[in-house]
Amino acid sequence: MKLFGSRCDCVLAIVRKDFLLNLRRRATFAAMMMFALTTVASLSLSTGGAILDEKFLAAILWVVIFFAATAGLSGTFDDEAQAGTLSTLKLYGDAQAILFGKMFVSMLSLLALTIFILPIFCVLFDVNVEKIFLLLATILFGLIGLAAAGTLTAALTTSAKIKGGLFAILLFPVTLPIFLPAIRLTEISFTSAQVDSSLLVVIGAFDTILILASSILYDYL
């Protein structure tokens, strides 16, 4: 049993390392951002001028986040496997520390993605956010689950022969319990409708389950 403190230190070292790598090799990060921008722009262009209802807008936002996330997270482990560094990392690093380090990195890049795309989305679709804190809370909760499930799924697809698409296929059903309530809550945040806070609890509970399950299941890989 390793001390909690030394594991935290290990997690921080991995986060710092990935941050440096992302800073120097911007390709994955840039691809994720541009993917989000392209999808938002193409949807906005093709629906230009039409008045879209809030339900549709909320769905668009989450679909964009989901697919941009798959572009950004699918290589979490595979990029290192391709570079040959994954075996070194696994040998010297504690397994749980690697998992949580990667989860943190995923969460940070998803946060950066949302900070980038949300204002653009709101401007291009002329969205009127009525309840900004509900929207932010929903996004935060949603991204936590997405990062947790995405990290474990990325670990699963590392040894797969086909990469394109597989990550999204695997991730989507697993994150549905996040998306359905998140889309509903996002829709509510765009209108003056009453808040169904039990949905936020559902997302939070599922986030917790996903983090615990990832932690337990990762040891078997």
Partner: peptide, 13 residues
């Protein structure tokens, strides 16, 4: 600890 041709170090670091 190990030293093996399969185990690479980080190029960008």
């Amino acid at each position: 600890a190990a030293l093996s041709p399969e185990m690479k170090i980080y190029d960008a670091l």
